[in-house]
Write a protein that binds this DNA or RNA. Sequence first.
DNA 1: GTCTTATTTGTGAATTTTATGAAAATATTA
DNA 2: TAATATTTTCATAAAATTCACAAATAAGAC
Lengths: 224, 224
Amino acid sequence: MNNSILVVDDEARMRKLIKDFLMAKGYNIIEAEDGEKALELFEENQSKICLILLDVMMPKLDGWSVLRQIRQKSQIPIIMLTARGEEQDELFGFELGVDEYISKPFSPKILVARVEAILKRMDANINRVKDCAGIEIDKDGRTVKVDGKFIDLSLREYELLEYLIENENIALSRDKILNNVWNYDYYGDTRTIDSHVKKIRSKLGKKGKFIKTIRGVGYKFEIK
Amino acid sequence: MNNSILVVDDEARMRKLIKDFLMAKGYNIIEAEDGEKALELFEENQSKICLILLDVMMPKLDGWSVLRQIRQKSQIPIIMLTARGEEQDELFGFELGVDEYISKPFSPKILVARVEAILKRMDANINRVKDCAGIEIDKDGRTVKVDGKFIDLSLREYELLEYLIENENIALSRDKILNNVWNYDYYGDTRTIDSHVKKIRSKLGKKGKFIKTIRGVGYKFEIK
DNA sequence: GTCTTATTTGTGAATTTTATGAAAATATTA
DNA sequence: TAATATTTTCATAAAATTCACAAATAAGAC
């Protein structure tokens, strides 16, 4: 779907380098060789693009101008590519809405890491609904559907389930759960979690088994 | 603990400059004035060092050679310090495992920022999963895979294995193991460890042999 | 090779931990 | 305030793990 990355750089060699590494990670790449082209392509493919990699130094329209124009209508994440000696600009760029800088030359590892870090950060904020193997959780509506059917969860049940799913594949100790789902000043029995887990499991039906018990530790949400 | 940075540069003035800024940020600095010295010091202090700042141009053994030798046994983050005009080498350097470049002259602010950015990213990645010759251990999920297949470990089994692998290549006495894996107030039979080792070995299958017996002492995890 | 010592291994009882159901306490709503 | 729903606690049942013991095996010393 929208996993295309717009790469804007006047050097074909640089574009190719970036393209190779990001395509290997499963992203689709749209290339632009200058600022004007970048704006055009962004316009055309806005719905597909999830992130822009933008070189600062370019003929015709430079990176800062492109940035300003895009920021007038979109909050899409933008990573600026700066060359040597442009460090001084980095500090001022954040005001204009730069999400991150990568200075050339950069290692592919760094490139991929930053891109993924940013996308993850965005996802967390934008993605208010998450679907885990048919358990659909809508954080705005605070509702949960299992196989398309709404199920009723009480406040604690909902929050506990949300927390578990938020931390999919991570084993959570009872203490950690209490600290995050309950108020941190809760001093009751740690076993109260078990009761809630029991209820959630039964309300999830067959999918209740995705809440795994980690003996001696706590619980983990895991689809397996 | 391991917050030392190895700074390798033939110019004493440059080393001092870097040292001053990084020490102000709480890092411990180990200095080397040439490549040979760098390799020696890295060997000696491997467990303490968390990052290497490596000048490219040096007498005796240049930065690239040092890089290559270190990469043969360690994935420690390495930042190369390049002088102006050495740009052409940089792309090839990434293949050798350079994490980042900083070109001289650089501002102290940039130096510190890059160092911290890399360390932060490494932290996030290193901590999560570790792969030792096909034994993959995920601390967040508290799961262990052997050759891609999940194996079930009980609480003690998991913690013991994690402890052994955490201390790869270090012989651990039974007392030390008891103190670290069991609650410190455990006063049972020290032979209990043996039973657990046995179970872990059998669950690891062929790879169980990586848990070595150190007669008269205890055990050691070692891939050999 | 034999003797001594340490380790491995299998077994099952004791212990620990979790699940469950139900009741008590608390909060919410009408 | 009464009725209702939710949260918490508790007791017991069920499940899984831990651990001690002892026989078998292996390693090292002489």
